[in-house]
Design a protein around this nucleic acid. Structure first.
Lengths: 233, 233
DNA sequence: ATTCATTTATTTGCATGCATATATTCGCAC
DNA sequence: GTGCGAATATATGCATGCAAATAAATGAAT
């Protein structure tokens, strides 16, 4: 039951980073963190190494620093996510999915419709994550699934990465509607085994995030992920 | 000048794994390795964590084990490499490359021709790695470059991953010639800014590795990477 | 011989000491 | 005040001790 200490430290630090509590450029000192968290430096060190592997920290000759992303990198990461998720749905389409799997996707689409009418953003967010996870899983390729999940680590690249503060803007509302149209077409493409179309749609779907990033920066809205982006906000 | 110990251990262990010295499924005990390498367990531990992050080791509740790959995973990894390198050359094509960059690529193509006539496989191998590295770099996306490099870690997925023992077989010789045709067409597509074509060509180019894997297994040839593949050889 | 429980031997996860490398502070000249 | 070097303080990299967890070995029962 007692979680390993390096895992707790890992979760703790990771959430502090992606939530913007630890701004990009912050130096992370193992000894200091150890004292702060009441454990020794060893498990902290393991967590830091893992976070470096995830690309959230960079290590120079004297310690770890929270990575900061150039704006170009943020956009490139979004495209990477689209590419990988696109490849996943293409595979799903081309190998074909079962009736029950299709029914499940269609059920989610109806849920989306419902949430878009009356639900709040958090509800949409959760459903969206679940939907993308399901689509990726249908690829049947563990390698691809792992890489898609990995691509989510970059700021704004994950399916739940849109700034919640924009939730009432017209632009954001519209992008959700377009996104739902994408979702429907992607499921349709998979059902018809149109792999190329599914791929293209998913790439385009990811690109919606580009506008969200731009809007968040332009409006100087407080989105947690912005803490990791250089020269922004 | 004195390399950090955990780095030496990392390089050492990684090369032992990909060279097949450490077969898939082997358990790696930090204390034992420490004694063997004449250093303490701490730097060994760091190396093991990093190798887990690279996907070469898996960690269960009591230690690290050399990962073994299902045959499907090997083929999926090859496709992943093609996808990522394909995206890289597409970007290179669409943003355009300079004259000097084009000249450099064309110079490499001539080198390939020369090596294909008279050179040995090692020479080809080195040139191939360099060529793929150059192409990927022309994408101009650090994110993509890093992910391409990362995709090379899987057995048979890297550009230098073909079994050297096949070097004299007719089939292998033919695949080198087809590969060179791909190289030429990819450079041509980039030069003409035909991104979609470059992408498709690179995907197809990676697929040559599928046949190499199959041939290595069928012929029960000794390829080092086979040590990581389950139920093979 | 095979299964199972018990004992023994290793190994891991974490804490911590120490030497060296790095950062910080201080002092002094300008 | 600013720039530069020495002195001090702090953090890292590695080694190692120790308790708890895991693996290996032993042996009894079937």
């Amino acid at each position: 039951m007692s979680e390993l200490q390096w895992k707790s430290a890992l979760y703790d630090l990771r959430s502090q980073i992606v939530s913007g509590e630890l701004v990009g450029g912050t130096k992370l000192r193992a000894s200091h963190l150890a004292g702060e968290m009441g454990i020794s430096r060893t498990p902290i060190g393991e967590a830091l190494i893992k976070l470096e592997g995830e690309g959230l920290l960079v290590r120079d000759k004297s310690g770890f620093t929270v990575r900061s992303f150039a704006l170009d990198e943020v956009h490139d990461a979004i495209d990477l996510r689209g590419l990988l998720e696109g490849a996943a749905v293409q595979r799903a389409a081309e190998r074909g999915i079962s009736d029950v799997e299709l029914k499940q996707l269609q059920g989610m689409l109806l849920e989306f419709d419902r949430v878009l009418k009356g639900g709040d953003v958090a509800e949409y967010d959760q459903l969206n994550v679940e939907f993308h996870h399901t689509l990726t899983g249908l690829s049947g390729s563990d390698i691809l699934i792992a890489e898609v999940e990995r691509s989510y680590r970059f700021p704004f690249a994950g399916p739940s990465a849109f700034p919640t503060q924009q939730s009432d803007s017209d632009r954001f509302r519209a992008s959700l509607i377009v996104g739902q149209q994408h979702h429907q077409q992607i499921v349709s493409a998979i059902a018809k085994r149109e792999g190329g179309r599914a791929f293209a749609l998913m790439c385009e779907h990811a690109r919606l995030a580009h506008e969200n990033v731009r809007a968040a920066i332009e409006a100087r809205e407080h989105a947690p992920q912005l803490a990791l982006v250089r020269n922004a906000k």
